[in-house]
Structures are given as structure tokens and as C-alpha cells.
């Protein structure tokens, strides 16, 4: 659906050239929810803007829905953009228009006749759950409702691709979840390809099928969300995964416990998919002469199944503890012995 081939974007600034996006190759499948995560300044905003040519790449090819965007004429590009919608962090609604008129805007741009427009607007209002708010102005809506208008507006011309530019970053956690659910719903209902950028791993975990991690203009790691959660390779990826698995207090607590009982071992277990229900702990207690102290655990849902982490502390004779760890390694869980030295 979307292919990026050796895409580069260099900005000329007073302090010299800045490689905002540096040789990115990427391929996104039809019907997929693809997440790009990175800290601010990583180049993800520039990258997503090249998918509809709001930013033109300095070199490289961007192909969306079979069209090489950099080779299109202005007129063709405007036409192509009607199939590549975008929603924004700050919603970017026209305050001078009502909800209905905002949703009708892209239809006006596309030259849809008035009666058809009204019909389509009513459908979209229902789809995003804004019944009864059609005549309101954006200033009368909450953030979540504004983003719903943004989504309805983006879907008006039946696009093939939806680009989400930090679409939930300005919303509170509860509203974020409802907007994410709406995105999953339209992804399934309309078989829409969704590309989103974010700095919140929570968003990736909740709705993405695949994820790419961006740092300094490059994609440093990518793959199915569960794989990346299970085996984060790069330091930055591990950092992002920690946003989900490890609240900051955990680190402090584990450090404390480790220093109190230096002979014990602290182990992080990662369960993925169906084996999240396996009775590994019970088995360890039965088979080995160790004490198991459960420190912290968490299971969260992803698009490809559940994902859980458990921190335990093992106490006992060194040999028993080592054998227990080896045993767990043989099971279908990821085992990592934590040390905070």
C-alpha cells in the first residue's frame, strides 16, 4: 500500500543542513495499522508528512496506493491527496464552520454535489458517534469530540490511507482510549490502512499491528508489535517498551529489594500470546527449593494477543536458583535476570 524507498529529507537551516529523515525504507501493507514511535525531533512528523507530500522528500521515492507521489503534477497530487487523509494533534478544524460544515469541507473540495454531501455527512456523524452535535461549532466541543470531527472529515472522501499525526497526544488517557477504539473500528470496518506517529508506547500497544522505532531520522528497529515488545534490540526501543512494562516506581522498588537481599535474584518474565496463562510459577515452586516473591505484574492487550510481564524475586541456595532460572528459560516465556549495578 505504501512504500518508501531511500527517502531523505534535508532541511537547510542557519546552523547548516539537518537530516530530518535519513535514508528510510519502509513498506506498509493494505489494511494494516502501522505505528511509528520516536521522541520529539526524531523526524517522525516530517516522515508522515512525506506520505502526502506536505513535505517533499529531498531524494527517494514515496509510493502510496500505486502512485509515485513525487512524480505527480500538482493537479494529480491534489487528486491523490483525497485518498490519503490526515488527522492532527490539534485537530485543525475550521472554527468558522459547524461540525457538519467541517465534515462537508473535503466533499466541497472534491466537488461532490450538495445533496450527496448532506447524506454523506449524516453517515459520517453516525459513524464517529457525534449524533446531535452537527450544528455545534468546534469551540463548543471537547477535545475528544473535536478529534471525532477530524476523523469524520478525514473519512469523508473514502480514503485508502489515514495518516494520524500524534492524533491522541493532546487528549486525556480516557479520551485517548475511546479515539483509539474508534480507529480500530474504522480500520476493521473499512479495511483502511492507518499510519500513525506517536511518542506513547501505550498507543502502539493498543492498536498497532506493526511498529517502527525512529531515532535521529532513521528507523532503527521495526517488526510486529509483539516481537518488538518481546525482543527489543535497540536501547531506545527498550526504553519505550519500559513505558508499558515498568512504571518508574518498579525500578526503585527492585533496586531497594536487591540491595536488601543481595544473594537473591530478581527475574523479569515476559509472557506473550496464549502462554500468558501457563502455570510457570507454580511449577517452579513445586520443582525447586526456592522461595518466589512476586514483586509486580501486568498483562496488557495488543492487537496480536495479550502481553504480560512479571517481576519475581527468587531466594534459595545458589544452585537451586540457577536451576529454576534454567527451567523457566526452557518454557515459552522470556526470562531476564535483572541487575541494577
Amino acid at each position: 500500500m505504501i512504500t518508501l524507498d531511500a527517502v531523505k529529507k534535508i532541511f537547510q537551516t542557519k546552523d547548516g543542513a539537518v537530516n530530518a529523515v535519513d535514508h528510510v525504507d519502509l513498506s506498509i501493507e493494505q489494511g494494516e495499522i502501522f505505528g511509528i514511535i520516536g521522541y520529539s525531533g526524531a523526524g517522525k512528523s516530517t516522515l508522515i508528512r512525506m506520505l502526502n507530500m506536505l513535505e517533499r522528500p529531498t531524494s527517494g521515492d514515496v509510493t502510496v496506493a500505486g502512485k509515485n507521489l513525487s512524480q505527480l503534477s500538482n493537479r494529480e497530487l491534489r487528486k491523490a491527496r483525497q485518498e490519503i487523509s490526515m488527522i492532527f494533534q490539534h485537530f485543525n478544524l475550521l472554527w468558522s464552520r459547524t461540525v457538519k460544515e467541517n465534515i462537508a469541507f473535503p466533499l466541497e473540495i472534491a466537488g461532490v454535489p450538495k445533496e450527496e454531501r448532506q447524506k454523506r455527512v449524516d453517515e459520517l456523524i453516525k459513524l464517529v458517534g457525534l449524533e446531535g452535535r452537527g450544528e455545534s461549532y468546534p469551540s463548543q466541543l471537547s477535545g475528544g469530540q473535536k478529534q471525532r470531527v477530524g476523523i469524520a472529515r478525514a473519512l469523508a472522501n473514502n480514503p485508502k490511507v489515514l495518516l494520524c499525526d500524534e492524533a491522541t497526544s493532546a487528549l486525556d488517557p480516557k479520551t485517548t482510549d475511546s479515539i483509539l477504539n474508534l480507529l480500530v473500528e474504522i480500520n476493521q470496518k473499512l479495511d483502511l490502512t492507518i499510519v500513525l506517529i506517536t511518542h506513547e508506547m501505550h498507543v502502539i500497544r493498543k492498536i498497532c499491528h506493526r511498529v517502527a522505532v525512529m531515532e535521529d531520522g532513521r528507523i532503527v528497529e521495526q517488526g510486529p508489535v509483539l516481537d518488538v515488545f518481546r525482543h527489543p534490540k535497540e536501547f531506545i526501543t527498550k526504553d519505550f517498551v519500559k513505558q508499558i512494562t515498568e512504571p518508574e516506581e518498579t525500578t526503585d522498588m527492585i533496586k531497594q529489594l536487591a540491595s536488601e537481599k543481595p544473594q537473591s535474584k530478581i527475574v523479569q518474565l515476559t509472557f506473550v500470546g496464549g502462554n500468558a496463562e501457563q502455570p510457570v510459577i507454580t511449577d517452579v515452586i513445586r520443582k525447586f527449593d526456592v522461595q518466589v516473591n512476586i514483586l509486580q505484574g501486568k498483562v496488557s492487550q495488543t492487537q496480536n494477543g495479550p502481553y504480560g510481564t512479571l517481576f519475581i524475586q527468587l531466594e534459595g541456595a545458589d544452585q537451586e536458583v540457577d536451576e529454576a532460572v534454567t527451567y523457566m528459560n526452557g518454557q515459552k516465556v522470556e526470562v531476564e535476570v535483572i541487575s541494577y549495578e
Binding site: N52, L54, L77, R78, K79, A80, R81, Q82, I84, S85, M86, F88, N92, L93, L94, F105, P106, I109, A110, R153, N157, L163
Partner: peptide
């Protein structure tokens, strides 16, 4: 808002 309008073609 101008960017949004551009993104819609």
C-alpha cells in the same frame, strides 16, 4: 488549518 486543507487536496 491551512495544512489540513492542503492535505485534503
Amino acid at each position: 488549518v491551512i495544512e489540513a486543507a492542503k492535505s485534503m487536496g
